[in-house]
Computed example of a mutant assay.
Amino acid sequence: MADMASTTAPAPLTVGFDLDMTLIDSRPGIHACYRALSERTGTYIDADLAVTRLGPPLAEELINWFPESEIAAMSDLYRSMYPSIAIAATPAMAGAREAIDAVRAAGGRAVVVTAKYEPNAKLHLEHLGIRPDEVVGDLWAEQKAEALREHGAGVYVGDHVGDVRGARKADALSVAVATGPCSTEELASAGADVVLGDLTEFPGWLDGYRPARA
């Protein structure tokens, strides 16, 4: 009788990707949107500082500038202003399209799982011509594990230690890119299985991962 372990095919390849500072450089658009929100409300917001700590949900940044009782309203206002201000100002990260293409070339599926408001996340991807198989928004850190499991992602690529925690909770391989607010050392210390300089290194890594996985 054949050894079952040698005849069982691996599960289909599904790779999850974070959005902000992983697939897109959201700093210019978010910076402009915070400045517009500041002007609209008459409330000081240090946009330069805010864009150095992207990753967590919007409310976690707004609480630094508005009373807690106003956070829900300010979040709604920010999100309503966002499409006309931030979308066109936001470029793709180096290697973003090639990373998605590499997953497809390997016969896999690409799923974006992000803390960003889902309608705005989809607008970014549509504007840039990046077309993953699925987009799931409004999930941060460990919350991302739910979507990663639902879509069968065996790999999750992100730039933040929160992304590492989400991958590990989902029992997915954590591939970190040092293109966001977290250093290579921070990502490794958080438990990332692989740390890349940026997404331009991802296709080469994936080529090596596939034979090892098979």
Rank of each mutant, 00 (worst) to 15 (best):
F202N: 03
R97V: 07
F66M: 00
A115M: 08
Y78N: 08
H124F: 14
T114L: 07
H160T: 11
L206C: 08
E186A: 00
E61H: 14
C182T: 11
R213M: 04
Y34S: 01
L125Q: 07
V177I: 08
V157S: 01
L77V: 07
R53A: 05
L206N: 11
G166F: 05
T114W: 05
A11I: 02
A147S: 03
T8P: 03
P91I: 15
H124Q: 11
T22L: 09
D18E: 13
V111K: 08
H31L: 08
L123P: 13
P67M: 02
V155A: 04
T90L: 07
A178W: 02
T8S: 09
G154C: 15
L139W: 05
A32C: 09
M4K: 02
L139C: 12
L49C: 12
G108S: 03
T43V: 10
A145I: 02
E185R: 09
V177C: 02
A170W: 00
E146Q: 03
S80F: 05
P56V: 03
K122N: 12
T200H: 12
A47C: 10
G129A: 13
A96G: 15
A11P: 06
Q143I: 08
D207W: 13
K122C: 15
P119T: 14
L196K: 06
T114C: 07
R35F: 00
E60L: 01
L23F: 06
M81D: 12
P67E: 00
T22I: 06
L128E: 12
E146F: 06
S38R: 04
F17S: 05
E201P: 12
V161G: 06
L62Y: 09
P28F: 08
A141W: 10
E126C: 14
S75P: 10
E185V: 05
P12R: 08
A92C: 15
S38I: 09
D198M: 03
S174W: 03
T43I: 11
R53K: 15
L62A: 06
A178I: 03
L123C: 11
T43S: 08
E201R: 10
L19E: 11
L77I: 09
T8E: 10
I85Y: 04
F17M: 12
D193N: 11
Y78C: 00
D46Y: 09
N64T: 11
E186G: 01
K144E: 04
C182W: 06
V51N: 02
L206Q: 13
P56L: 01
L19N: 11
D18Q: 05
A32H: 15
S80N: 03
R109F: 09
T114Q: 14
F202W: 13
E201H: 04
A167D: 13
A105Y: 07
R149W: 02
T179P: 01
A99W: 11
T22Q: 09
R97W: 02
S183H: 01
L54V: 14
R109D: 13
A50V: 14
E60Y: 00
G166I: 06
S75M: 10
A115R: 02
S75T: 12
Y82T: 03
M81I: 07
P10I: 10
C33Y: 06
L199K: 12
E118H: 08
A153V: 10
L199R: 07
D3A: 09
I30D: 14
S26Q: 15
V111I: 13
T114K: 07
P181E: 01
K169A: 13
P132W: 04
A214E: 12
L77Q: 14
A11Q: 08
T90V: 13
D159R: 05
